[in-house]
Simulated assay, not measured.
Amino acid sequence: MINCAIAGLGRWGRALVEAISNEPRLRIVAAVEPDIASAERFRATHGLAPTASLDAVLADPAVDAVLLATPHSLHKTQVIAAAAAGKQVFCEKPLALRRDDAAEMFAACRSAGVVLAVGHNRRFWPSMQALRAVVAGGELGTILHVEGHNSNENSQAVTQGWRLSSEESPGGGLTGAGLHVLDGFVSLLGPARQVYARLNTREAGPPPLDTATLAIEFVNGVSGTLATIRATPFYWRVHLFGTKGSAEVLDEVTMVLRKSGEAPATMRYPAVDTLTAELSAFADAVEGRRPFPMPEADVLATLAAFEAALQSMQIGHPVNCHLACQ
């Protein structure tokens, strides 16, 4: 049994608690939440012992791992402190707002001999796993272009707090929703070389009325576009175009395959609980069964492109990813 403490009992922290109940190797034994009143009913319902601070959790020898569902700006300090205390770490995305900060976190965990798992749950979507298999199998020929979109109506319910902060969640919807697509791109195509991004803002909200658009050039020569909007209903699309056909993922379980001379084929896959799946992968990594399927190189490449996009939004020109991270 891996005894875990969770820091952060907001919407996503609560979702992790619910998901972990389906993974028998993990058990939540403590919860850290500054806003005690807001989480009291949830904590009591799930039998979570309240803890005054993350420091108290890290000093507790009964705690083996920490799950971080905290504001992004806190991740670096918290991850490095957890590593120093010998705790395994699961941290929600984005791991950091700067690529170099993330690199420091990985280095700290590597030196301490503990796992650092980053919660990009859409990597576990059956449709995205199928898309990666299609690309790896060469069915689409030479990949030329990728298009992606993620809108997330959850933002309509966010009327206050750190998720609306331009410091905590810069780039409009890019930090919360668009980063999922950017990570999907990296998992399929590898690192980006250059990003040209724009953020169009109409009203500060809430809900915020902004759109973020990115034009991306990948190191392997593939071009890409990405858009994300916070105020419209949920929509997901990742569409790869190759010399022999295209493959388009439309949701968690649906992929449309189009090949030259053939009618489009719509594939549907059995749904899975992706939060439980990523937490099970974390348990596997902690137990030494297999590495967590979100390699450090992918995390850093995603954040390099993210950081370049934020810089491009500010200066109005394309930014090379390696330059944004110096």
Rank of each mutant, 00 (worst) to 15 (best):
Asn220Met: 03
Ala247Val: 10
Leu9His: 01
Gly113Lys: 05
Trp162His: 06
Arg290Lys: 14
Thr213Ile: 07
Val63Tyr: 08
His46Met: 10
Gly113Tyr: 13
Leu275Ala: 04
Ala112Lys: 02
Asp35Tyr: 03
Val319Ala: 13
Ile216His: 08
Gln314Ser: 09
Ala277Arg: 07
Val146Gly: 03
Asn150His: 14
Gln88Met: 07
Pro295Phe: 03
Ala107Val: 02
Pro295Tyr: 14
Arg11Asp: 13
Val249Leu: 12
Val222Asp: 07
Ala30Thr: 05
Arg198Trp: 08
Arg25Val: 02
Glu23Ser: 06
Leu275Met: 12
Ala112His: 01
Ala263Pro: 00
Leu214Lys: 02
Asp101His: 08
Pro50Gln: 15
Gly205Tyr: 15
Leu189Thr: 12
Asn3Arg: 14
Phe292Glu: 05
Asp55Val: 13
Gly261Thr: 08
Asp64Glu: 09
Lys259Gly: 06
Leu67Phe: 15
Ala263Cys: 09
Arg202Val: 15
Leu240Gly: 03
Pro206Ala: 15
Cys325Arg: 09
Ala247Met: 13
Ala108His: 09
Asn152Ser: 07
Gln78Trp: 12
Thr159Cys: 10
Gly176Glu: 00
Phe42Trp: 00
Pro126Glu: 07
Leu74Phe: 11
Gly261Gln: 15
Ala62Asn: 05
Thr213Trp: 09
Leu144Trp: 05
Ile216Ala: 11
Ser73Thr: 10
Asp100Glu: 15
Ser111Ala: 15
His322Asp: 11
Pro24Leu: 02
Leu48Ala: 15
Phe124Tyr: 09
Pro191Thr: 10
Ala69Leu: 02
Ala52Thr: 04
Met105Trp: 00
Arg41Val: 10
Ala103His: 00
Val79Phe: 00
Ala112Gly: 12
Tyr196Gly: 02
Phe292Asn: 04
Leu199Tyr: 04
Ala204Arg: 10
Glu33Gly: 05
Pro61Phe: 06
Ser151Pro: 09
Thr274Ile: 10
Leu68Asn: 01
Leu58Asp: 06
His46Phe: 14
Pro191Met: 07
Val219His: 13
Ala56Arg: 04
Ala212Val: 08
Leu182Phe: 06
Ala52Arg: 06
Val186Glu: 05
Val115Arg: 05
Ala117Gln: 06
Met313Glu: 02
Leu182Tyr: 14
Leu300Met: 12
Ile36Pro: 00
Leu164Thr: 08
Glu33His: 14
Cys91Thr: 06
Ala83Cys: 09
Arg202Phe: 11
Ala30Gln: 05
Arg25Pro: 02
Leu226Cys: 10
Ala304Trp: 06
Val319His: 05
Ala59Glu: 13
Ser151Arg: 07
Gly205Ile: 07
Ala103Ser: 01
Gly224Leu: 03
Glu168His: 06
Ala56Lys: 01
Leu240Thr: 10
Pro270Asp: 15
Trp12Arg: 12
Asn3Met: 14
